[in-house]
Every structure is written in structure tokens, then in C-alpha cells.
Simulated scan of single mutants.
Amino acid sequence: MATKRTTAPKAARNPVPAEPAKCPPCGGTGTVAATVRVGRKRRPVGQQDGLCLNCFGTGTDPES
């Protein structure tokens, strides 16, 4: 007759930590593109990188 297992398998005892979810606006990079506007008519001339205000540059979703 087989003996009963008294402990959980090793995989169940030491689960692998899940990766944190990526921030949706920046895609996990922590930066977003901001359009640069110049002139009286405020025409767009380019883009520059800015800090993501949703995750404050961490790249992880603050809701998870």
C-alpha cells in the first residue's frame, strides 16, 4: 500500500512571484511623448519625452 504525502509539492510551496502589471499609458517604460508647440498659433514642431504621471516613472500599474 502506498504512503500518503504529508507535504505539498515543492512548486506549490515556493510559488514564483508574478510580474507586476505594466502601466497602460506608458507601456511600462515610465516615459510618455509630449508634443512641443511653438508660435502664436501654437503649431506642433516635435515631441519630447516626459515622465508618466500615471505611474510616476516606475512603469508598473498603480491599480494592481
Results as ranks from 00 to 15, higher is better:
21 A>H: 14
16 V>F: 03
5 R>P: 04
57 G>S: 01
16 V>G: 02
42 R>F: 08
22 K>M: 11
23 C>E: 12
42 R>I: 06
39 G>H: 08
48 Q>Y: 07
27 G>M: 04
30 G>P: 01
23 C>N: 10
50 G>A: 13
19 E>A: 15
12 A>T: 10
9 P>V: 06
7 T>C: 02
59 G>R: 03
20 P>R: 05
57 G>H: 01
48 Q>D: 05
50 G>F: 04
55 C>Y: 00
35 T>L: 01
43 R>K: 15
44 P>Y: 02
4 K>A: 15
31 T>N: 02
12 A>I: 10
52 C>K: 03
31 T>E: 08
28 G>S: 04
10 K>V: 07
33 A>P: 02
7 T>L: 05
50 G>C: 09
36 V>Y: 02
31 T>L: 06
42 R>T: 10
17 P>N: 03
26 C>V: 09
42 R>M: 12
41 K>W: 14
21 A>R: 14
6 T>W: 06
51 L>H: 07
26 C>K: 04
15 P>T: 08
27 G>D: 04
9 P>D: 11
49 D>P: 04
18 A>L: 08
14 N>H: 11
33 A>N: 07
39 G>I: 06
49 D>H: 08
33 A>G: 04
51 L>Y: 04
15 P>I: 09
14 N>T: 11
24 P>K: 14
61 D>T: 10
44 P>D: 12
58 T>E: 06
20 P>S: 02
55 C>W: 01
39 G>M: 08
7 T>F: 05
60 T>A: 08
26 C>P: 05
59 G>E: 03
41 K>Q: 14
14 N>A: 10
40 R>Q: 10
30 G>D: 01
16 V>R: 12
35 T>G: 00
46 G>P: 01
22 K>V: 15
